[in-house]
Structure formats: C-alpha cells, structure tokens
Amino acid sequence: MEILMSIVVGVLFMTATYLMLSKSLLRIIVGTGLLSHGAHLLILTMGGLKRGAAPLLGENAESYTDPLPQALILTAIVISFGVTAFFLVLAYRAYKELGTDNIEQMRGTESNE
C-alpha cells in the first residue's frame, strides 16, 4: 500500500508542479491546492498506514495508528485552506486592478540603478 501511495503522491506533486509553472494565476492556485493534498498524503504515508485502530482510546484496541501525523495534517489542512483563500483573493484583486491574469505581464519594472 505504501508503494502505491508513494506513486500517488508523486503524481500529485508532478501535476501540481506543472500547474504552478504555467502562466495563468488560476492554474497556479489549483496547483498549490494539489500540492497540499500531495504533502498531506505524504506525511500520512510516512507515519505508516493501517497500523492499528483509529487513534481514539475509546476503541480499546491493541494498537493504534500514529496520531502525530494526523494532528500535523489537520493543522496543515486548515492552514492551506487559509492560504488558498488568501491567494484566490489576491489573484482576483490583481486581475481587477491590472486586467490580466498572466503573471508574465504582471512583472514589476524594477528600477534601482
């Protein structure tokens, strides 16, 4: 199962990277969303899969799945929601102000010489 999950994670990272390298803002945002999914699954896979019951003491099980990665992922999910929302609004405002969603056209002109 871990091997399969590693491949799934790899595919998620690959598509995310491809989207992030494109020029349209929306694609980049979708790319970051995929990237966070990939990262979450990666953390979960690292902790070992299906090693016991769900991490609830009420289950009275012999062994439990590793709770720490789950706690980390929970934090990460909520944070990535905040970041995605922020990014989305940023893109939307930038589009309204600048009239383009092509990041190549958004390039600032640096003039510090």
Binding site: A54, L56, L57, G58, L74, V78
Partner: peptide
C-alpha cells in the same frame, strides 16, 4: 476530546 471532532 473523546471522539472524532473538536474546534476545527
């Protein structure tokens, strides 16, 4: 605190 759930 006891079952799945919580603030988030």
């Amino acid at each position: 605190h006891y079952y799945p759930g919580g603030g988030f």
